[in-house]
């Protein structure tokens, strides 16, 4: 039977654990929030990972890891466009630009970063395909999963706690009305300052996360710290106060609605 389901019911760390313990070979495809991740395993070890349309060529990964300069990257893009990653890797090693270790470490770091991003996905369809292996033109690595599983479990626990504290990102933030608190005197991290600059009842936390390029875990982490410090409060978007739901009353007439509430008040007083 195919190994497929939803991350809601079976978390990423549980999946990695399963792959690890069963020494599975194949590719796990996860359709997450707005992106698709592909992670290949060989005999229970991480072999390859790719996230959505993110450029994951060897040249791009080496550039990101500062193993090659921007100029070298441009030259490689022009001259080695038709080369596979394996061919390019061999070329760079033989030409003495990089060692095999440089290349493998860069790939490992990139693949781990992809898997780390998946730890913030709490929903998404997944399927494990035993017939799909690492793409032939890519360089596979061989990494133990234990450390990633432990890290993921910790992050998941943090995620659960933060989700309890801040269940919805569709709410907004406002600065607390606490006299004497000057935010300039508070030592905030760069991320916290970035969020603080968007604190406004008009901006939902989801919008702030999108603008500051934070994922759901990161924005919750920052907001939680600001909440704990008593600097911000969670409010409804637009700063709107409460309102009565349209279907709460059996009538739309305002006078009748008011009379209805008074009737309930009288009745409760008489109980």
């Amino acid at each position: 039977m195919a190994l497929k389901g939803n991350l809601r019911d079976f978390t990423i760390t549980q999946l990695l654990n399963l792959v690890n313990l069963a020494c599975k070979t194949g590719t796990l495809v996860i359709e997450g929030p707005g992106d698709v991740a592909r992670i290949s395993f060989r005999e229970g070890k991480l072999a390859y990972a790719q996230l959505g349309e993110q450029e994951s060529t060897l040249a791009a990964i080496l550039r990101r890891n500062k193993k090659i300069s921007a100029r070298q990257y441009t030259i490689l893009q022009e001259r080695a466009q038709k080369m596979t990653d394996k061919e390019l890797g061999l070329l760079l090693i033989n030409a003495g630009y990089l060692s095999q270790t440089d290349i493998i470490e860069s790939l490992q770091q990139y693949f781990v970063a992809v898997v780390r991003q998946l730890f913030t996905w709490v929903e998404g369809l997944f399927q494990f395909d035993t017939n799909t292996l690492t793409p032939l033109d890519k360089i596979p690595v061989r990494m133990d999963l234990e450390n990633l599983i432990i890290e993921g479990s910790r992050q998941l626990r943090e995620w659960e706690q933060l989700s309890q504290e801040i269940p919805s990102l569709d709410m907004s933030l406002k600065f607390s009305d606490r006299p004497g608190t000057n935010i300039r005197n508070v030592n905030l991290s760069v991320e916290e300052w970035r969020v603080v600059s968007y604190v406004n009842p008009k901006n939902t936390m989801r919008q702030i996360a999108r603008t500051t390029k934070m994922n759901e875990l990161e924005i919750r982490r920052v907001v939680y710290a600001l909440l704990q410090a008593g600097l911000v409060e969670i409010i409804r978007p637009g700063g709107a106060s409460v309102s009565i739901q349209p279907r709460a009353f059996p009538t739309t007439d305002k006078k009748e609605q008011k009379s209805l509430v008074y009737r309930i008040i009288d009745r409760i007083r008489s109980i």
Binding site: Q164, E165, M171, R236, A240, V242, S243, I244
Partner: peptide
């Protein structure tokens, strides 16, 4: 208490109703 706060925030997000 933490869960109570979480439930309150969840309900506030569902509907801006008096509570």
């Amino acid at each position: 208490f933490r869960e109570a706060r979480s439930i309150l925030e969840t309900f506030r997000a569902y509907a801006p109703t008096p509570y």
